[in-house]
Nucleic acid binder design. Structure first.
Lengths: 340, 340
DNA sequence: CTCATCACTTAGATCGATCTAAAATGTTTC
DNA sequence: GAAACATTTTAGATCGATCTAAGTGATGAG
C-alpha cells in the first residue's frame, strides 16, 4: 500500500453514493436493507460498496441512533475457568445477534468495578452483564437505575430490582447433602473459600438448611485460602475439627481440586478416607482422577441465559425485574463412598 | 426516576458549557486536561460536570479523532483455560491504558474469524490481537495490511509481516527431551492434539530436532482426540506403537490432563510406568496429583507482551514487524521417573 | 498612545452515519 | 388531461464531541 493510499481517509457512505450515482440517503437505506429502495438501485449501490471496499462505521451511526451494539461483561476473575465458561456462553449469544462484547475484570474490587462501569457508560454500551464484586453496596442498583442502563446480574446478586440469572445453589446443596446422607454420612463439612457474597451466602445457608432437615449438625464450616496453590496444603484443617468429618462438600471447583490434591499428598484415598463433592462442575471435574462427584451449575448455560435476558431487557426496558434460577444437577462419579 | 427524566436525552458537553457559562470548546478543553484553560474556569466546568452527572461520549469524540480506544482480541477457544489466562494478561495491560477489550471467539474457524475481523473493523478498533484460526491463509496478512489495521499475532503466526508474540516452543521441547533423556529415557512419544497450525508445527519440529540431536528416534508421534473427555479413553494408543514409549511429552495441558486420567484408569502409575511432561503450564498443572512436570509458556505474560506490542504498533505504525519469543521454563514436579 | 505578547476563550466547521419531510417519478383512475 | 396515489429518491438537519483559526482583555515595551 502506498503512502498516499494510507493517508487517504476511509471510504465513506458519501463516496459510495457518488460512485453509484445516488444520494447519501439512498445509500444509507441500502445499508439498512430498507424495502423502500428499488432493486436495480440496490444492487448498484451494493456493487459500489464492494468496488470501493466500504466499511460500515458503527460509531458514526450510533451518534444518531441510540444503539452502540456493544455489551459489557464484568467478571471478578478471568483466570478462573468457571468465569471463562460463563463468558463463552455470553459471547456466543451476543455474537449471534451481531453485537460485540467488551470484557472487563473487576478483580473482585468494588472501586475497580465502579471505574469499569463508568468506562462502559462512556463507551455507550447497550447493557452490561455484571457479576458483582464481593461487598458491592446494594445502593449500586439505584445508581444503575438512575443511569437507565440495562443490567443483568449473574451468579451473584446485590438487589432484587435488577434482573438476575444464577443457579439454585440451595437445591444443589440439598442434592449433595441428601446423596451423602444416603450413603450413611453424618459428619459432613462445608469447605468454603473466597469472599462473602450472595452466592457464598446461599451456598452456606443451603448447606445448613439441608443438613438440618436431615437432622444433621451443620456446624462444620471450614474456610480455605483463596489461592488454589494454598488450598492443598491447608487440607489439614479438615482434620482439626471437634468432630472429624467423613465427607466434605466444596464451595467450588477450586476447593475441590485443592482438597483432592491435598488428600493425595497426605496419602489418603478419596471416597474411602474422605468423600468429596465438588461444585460448579467445570470441564476439569471429569478429567481429574478419581473423577469428582460434583454439583453442576452449568456456567455456559448461565452465561447464555444472562445474555438472552439482557437482550430482552434492552428491547423492553419497562419489564419488571426478573430472576432466572437454573437447576443444578448432581453428577455422581467416583469421589464418594460409605463412611468408614 | 420519573418518566420525563428518562425521556430527556443524555447530558451533553453543551449542557455542561452552558451551566458553567463557558463555550463548548472550553468545556472540551477541560475534558482533555488542556493547560490552556484557566484554573478558575476549569474548576467551574468540573463542578458543572459533577452537578449535571455528565458522561463523556467516547463514540462522539472518535468521530472526529482517529482513536476508538477499543482493542479487539480473537482467540480460537474461550473455554480453554490457557486462552482465558492469555486474555487476562491482555485485558490487564489494555485496561491500564484506559482502553477497552472486545472479546471474540473464532472457534478455530476461518470464516468465523473473517466475520469477526470485519465486525471489529466496523467498530473501528484501534488494533487487534489475533490468535489465528488453524488453516488461516497467509494471504490474510495482505488484507490486514490493506486495511491498515494494527494487528499482533499471538501464539500462532501466519505471516512474518505482522508482529508476533509467542513462546519458544522448540526450546521448550528441547528442555523436555533433554530432561527425559537425562533420566535415561530413550523411547519418548509426542502426544499431539488439535488442528495443525504454526504452534503445532513448531512443537512437532522442536520435538523431532531435540530427539535427533540426542540420537533418539523421533518417530513416535500420536494424535489424540480434540475433546478433553475423549483423550483419557484414547490412552491405549500410547501402548499400541511399534516401540512402546517409556515417556510422553504432551502437546498442551489438555492432553496432559487427559493422559494423566487415562493412565490412572488403567491402573498405571505416572512417573513409574510412564513419565509424563505437560506443556503450557496453566494453574491446574500444580493442582493435579501427581503434580505434573511441565514446560511453562506463561500465557498471562504472553498476553501482556502482546498487548504492549500492539500499543507500540498503534503509536508507531511504520515500525518494521517484530517477533517476540518468550522463554519457556521446565517445571520439574512429580510426573517423571527413570524408565523401568 | 500604539503595538506586540501572553493567557485564555470561542464561533463554526467537521467527522460519518440516520432521520424527517418533501420532491421526483411512474401508474391508475375518472 | 388532471387528480390521486404509490413508489423511489433526496436535501439538509442532526447526533456530541474536537479542531482550526480567530477573538478577547490585560500587560509590558517602545
Amino acid at each position: 500500500m502506498s503512502f498516499d493510499e494510507r493517508k487517504k481517509s476511509r471510504v465513506t457512505l458519501l463516496d459510495v453514493a457518488r460512485h453509484a450515482n445516488v444520494s447519501r440517503a439512498t445509500a444509507s437505506l441500502v445499508l439498512r436493507k430498507s424495502p423502500l429502495v428499488g432493486s436495480e438501485t440496490r444492487s448498484r449501490v451494493e456493487q459500489a460498496m464492494r468496488d470501493l471496499g466500504y466499511v460500515y462505521n458503527i460509531g458514526a451511526a450510533r451518534l444518531r441512533v441510540e444503539r452502540s451494539q456493544i455489551i459489557g461483561a464484568i467478571v471478578p476473575n478471568l483466570t478462573n475457568p468457571f468465569f471463562a465458561e460463563l463468558l463463552s456462553g455470553i459471547e456466543e449469544v451476543i455474537g449471534e445477534t451481531g453485537k460485540v462484547v467488551i470484557l472487563a475484570n473487576s478483580g473482585d474490587k468494588v472501586e475497580r468495578q465502579a471505574m469499569l462501569l463508568q468506562r462502559m457508560r462512556e463507551h455507550g454500551v447497550d447493557g452490561v452483564i455484571l457479576c458483582p464484586a464481593a461487598r458491592t453496596a446494594p445502593a449500586l442498583s439505584e445508581e444503575i437505575a438512575d443511569w437507565g442502563m440495562p443490567v443483568v446480574q449473574v451468579l451473584r446478586h446485590i438487589s432484587f430490582d435488577i434482573d438476575y440469572v444464577g443457579a439454585d445453589y440451595a437445591a444443589g446443596m440439598r442434592q449433595a447433602v441428601d446423596y451423602l446422607a444416603s450413603l450413611g454420612h453424618e459428619k459432613i463439612a462445608f469447605a468454603a473459600h473466597g469472599p462473602v457474597q450472595s452466592a457464598y451466602q446461599e451456598r452456606v445457608d443451603g448447606f445448613r438448611d439441608a443438613m438440618l432437615s436431615k437432622g444433621l449438625d451443620p456446624g462444620i464450616l471450614i474456610h480455605f485460602p483463596t489461592q488454589l496453590g494454598e488450598i492443598a496444603s491447608a487440607t489439614h484443617l479438615l482434620f482439626e475439627q471437634a468432630t472429624r468429618p467423613t465427607a466434605a462438600i466444596c464451595f467450588n471447583h477450586l476447593v475441590a481440586l485443592g482438597l483432592s490434591a491435598g488428600l493425595y499428598d497426605r496419602g489418603l484415598t478419596i471416597g474411602r478416607d474422605l468423600s468429596l463433592i465438588g461444585f460448579d462442575d467445570v470441564a476439569d471435574e471429569e478429567a481429574i482422577r478419581p473423577k469428582l462427584t460434583s454439583v453442576s451449575t452449568g456456567p455456559v448455560t448461565i452465561g447464555e441465559m444472562a445474555a438472552r435476558l439482557l437482550l430482552e431487557r434492552i428491547a423492553n426496558p419497562d419489564l419488571p425485574p426478573r430472576r432466572v434460577v437454573n437447576d443444578t444437577t448432581l453428577h455422581i462419579r467416583q469421589s464418594c463412598g460409605r463412611p468408614q
